[in-house]
Design a protein around this nucleic acid. Structure first.
Lengths: 258, 258
DNA sequence: CTTGACCCTGACGCCGCGGCAGGGCGTAGG
DNA sequence: CCTACGCCCTGCCGCGGCGTCAGGGTCAAG
């Protein structure tokens, strides 16, 4: 059951696991102002506000300051998809950084084990995160230079209704190919099904964003964990969601085995 | 070339990519006091100080406060290996959390794509990191209850010289098995070699710390990227480092395929 | 109509530094 | 030997991001 009545500060605080004070602070800072205010002055947060809060929390987790976040969120030319991509990008960067640190720790453990002496230089250099230049610009630039991203960026920006219709049709085609294979009894892990899965992945990559096999795997998992995603495929045929899930996984496994 | 003369603040600052002010602050806070002070009052940091700084930076990256860090670092019963394990554990936790966030973002992108409406609740709940209870205790408790960890913990604590000698011998045995296989021309990806790799992994797990196939893979990579680790294996036979590397990877791949 | 849970607006405080001022080192070059 | 330039020192102020009261209104249940 999904509540449509706006949320009070306390409710939001509990949901997002932040304190009421923090929400007050965000209000003062102008980064998250509730759309509604009751007559008695109570803050009432709408669903859109929660979406915004989600973004704020995400950006904060990767170490941004409030001011920076505000400018990002208030950039009017930024469509929601771009925002999501940015979030994804920033999270990925941060994860990679922590991964490097973890790897360094593992190295140190191993060095101890084998009685080696690592010089302090290499031990410390990995742990100095926080690049000075603003995250957003930096990240944008890094990707602005890769051809694939620029392509995708410009394309989706300039998509017409007709284009989107074509995209829809393309995706529909993929779904029907999945369904046809399943109906024909082709195994989800077989070469035919994985070929469709790969086409599916490349479709996403062309139209929306760089989508690694791992990401694709993640999307596939959604069809099992969330009924609404499943429903989309189940409209083509009963059991198709599971079939698609398996095919995508098989394809991703195949890619990573090389 | 590795400098053995102590480092000045500026040098340390450059190495660790922090400001001089930060080091001063750490000094004031008592969390990192240089072992030496020249007659004229200059701070001189030793290699040990840099090690300590590495820990500090690591703990900070996972969101700890300075005071908490200090108590952790000054706990006298904490041997260096335990510290490293803790660091590894905390980093892993943080990475997993960010990974969940990334997954949530992917979900939202996919939802947009398919025109679904996610309710705000599930969007926001993942992004509220920072558990209130102290990290250290919490993490320790989580692992304190798993039998394997407790075992390992108690065992290594009570190891005698003889025990360590046995460990050394065990590892030596593994290295010789690797070398024998390579000499016999057995493929590094073959079942014999991967069996040794698995024995290797289990050895690490028994003696030192929980070592997933992925971690093992990371350790294997060290033998290629760092000559000193390579040298350890190369003493048994020329080219053994690469052989071990491949065997471990093959074994890890085999495990994750299941 | 009371009571307890929840909301409001200040205001002060803490932590983790950034940044500057005012003043000693230290070493290389003229 | 003196100078000049870079690095070091010790205060000290300030700011961002909240935590934490205090003092007072609001609202739904009983």
């Amino acid at each position: 059951m999904i509540s449509r009545t706006p949320y009070t500060v306390g409710a939001v605080a509990k949901l997002a696991n932040v304190t009421v004070r923090t929400l007050h602070h965000y209000h003062e800072a102008g980064v998250l102002r509730p759309t509604l205010r009751t007559e008695s002055g109570y803050r009432m947060y709408s669903a859109a506000d929660l979406e915004r809060l989600q973004r704020i929390l995400c950006y904060r987790q990767v170490g941004m300051g409030i001011a920076e976040i505000r400018t990002l969120l208030d950039a009017p030319a930024d469509d929601p998809l771009a925002q999501l991509r940015r979030q994804h990008r920033l999270l990925t960067d941060r994860i990679e950084q922590l991964e490097r640190m973890r790897q360094a720790v593992a190295k140190m453990m191993e060095a101890r084990r084998m009685g080696l002496q690592l010089d302090p230089h290499e031990m410390v250099e990995v742990f100095g995160g926080d690049d000075p230049t603003g995250y957003a610009e930096e990240a944008e630039r890094r990707w602005g230079e890769t051809s694939a991203w620029a392509e995708s960026q410009r394309r989706t920006a300039g998509y017409t209704k007709a284009d989107w219709q074509r995209v829809r049709a393309e995706f529909d085609e993929i779904c029907r190919r999945y369904a046809a294979l399943m109906a024909a009894g082709a195994p989800a892990g077989g070469s035919e099904a994985t070929a469709v899965a790969e086409a599916h992945r490349q479709h996403l990559e062309r139209v929306y964003y760089p989508c690694t096999p791992q990401m694709h795997r993640g999307l596939a998992d959604l069809t099992l964990t969330d009924r609404r995603f499943a429903a989309h495929y189940e409209r083509y045929a009963a059991g198709l969601a599971a079939y698609v899930h398996e095919a995508i996984h098989a394809n991703a496994d195949g890619q990573s085995d090389e």
